[in-house]
């Protein structure tokens, strides 16, 4: 759909020079639709549009060009340009939530986090379901280093918009940094529900379960195995994880692996993982790396 709007399909077609207003509009739309954060390119295309004061553009196009250039200017720390753009927008849309959000982003870019935060909170009071502002608030709190508050704000956001996978991912990251593995596991469970075919989420979830230890190691092994089932090629992380799990289960002693069948399975998985890893590195790694690997595998097996 994104390409249908702009009519451009690749960055090469966008180019790096300003051709005409039409092309510039389409290029900016392309960058935005594909979430390519290229403020340099946005400025290349957007600056002439802003300088032309909307000549040859519809008003909607002109204002959205101003908005994009404004964001790019913030990215590139070009305060005068940002000011020029936001003045146009604020003059046309006084009191608009979107413009207020943009203004608060300037404070954020300038490092005035407390001001930005209170601005965001003020907007949320008027428009409590504003996704953009809720997410910006999380970003500010994280920039301030207040991960606890950031996590809380994210939880608030996710209580509303629970199908935002990126937000779950971010919350999971925050919890991992905070060593709150149970909570992080919950986030990754949500991600598994959102995208059950993504092997990375399975692997990451297994990592967390392995870290939790105890009976969860057995579950972790299943998730590593499933990750390998989904993505059998170049999935070294899952292979290493599988080995670690088997190792942990084997070293837990005969009390835990009293089930003979299970012990046999553990051994089989260990062998499988180590042969796979050896094969994966064969011919690719240098000799010294290979010896490191084989020594490590020996240690694990």
């Amino acid at each position: 759909m994104a390409t249908a709007i702009s009519g451009l399909t690749s960055l090469e077609q966008v180019g790096t020079t300003y051709v005409n207003a039409r092309h510039a509009i389409r290029s900016i739309a392309f960058l935005k639709a594909n979430r390519l954060r290229r403020p340099d390119l946005v400025l290349t295309f957007g600056l002439p549009l802003v300088d032309a004061k909307g000549a040859g553009l519809s008003q909607a196009e002109s204002y959205s060009a101003h908005e994009e250039v404004y964001l790019a200017a913030l990215d590139l720390d070009d305060a005068p340009l940002a000011k020029r753009c936001i003045e146009v927008l604020a003059g046309r849309f006084p009191g608009s939530f979107r413009v207020r959000t943009l203004q608060a982003m300037a404070q954020e870019a300038g490092g005035r986090f407390n001001e930005a935060l209170s601005a965001y909170n003020a907007i949320l009071e008027d428009d409590p379901a504003n996704t953009l502002v809720m997410k910006r608030r999380v970003a500010v709190l994280e920039s301030m280093g207040n991960t606890t508050a950031a996590a809380q704000a994210l939880v608030e956001y996710l209580a509303l918009y629970s199908s935002d996978g990126d937000a779950w991912l971010q919350l999971g990251k925050i919890y991992l940094v905070d060593s709150q593995y149970r909570k992080a596991a919950f986030c990754y469970e949500e991600l598994l529900l959102l995208a059950p075919t993504n092997h990375v989420f399975h692997t990451k979830y297994a990592d967390i379960l392995y870290t939790l230890g105890g009976p969860d190691v057995k579950t972790a092994r299943k998730y590593y195995a499933h990750s390998l089932n989904i993505c059998p090629q170049n999935n070294a992380r899952a292979l290493y994880g599988l080995m670690m799990c088997c190792q942990a289960m084997a070293s837990a002693g005969p009390a835990r692996s009293k089930d003979k069948d299970d012990a046999r399975k553990t051994a089989a998985l260990l062998e499988f993982a180590s042969t796979q890893l050896e094969q994966m590195y064969a011919g690719k790694a240098s000799v010294s790396d290979s010896t490191v690997l084989s020594r490590m595998l020996e240690g694990l097996a």
């Binding site: 849309f93 939530f97 979107r98 413009v99 959000t101 953009l132 918009y161």
Partner: peptide, 12 residues
């Protein structure tokens, strides 16, 4: 309208 509503893309 979109500007004053402040929601260009609203997943919810």
């Amino acid at each position: 309208l979109m500007m004053s509503a402040g929601m260009g893309m609203m997943p919810g």
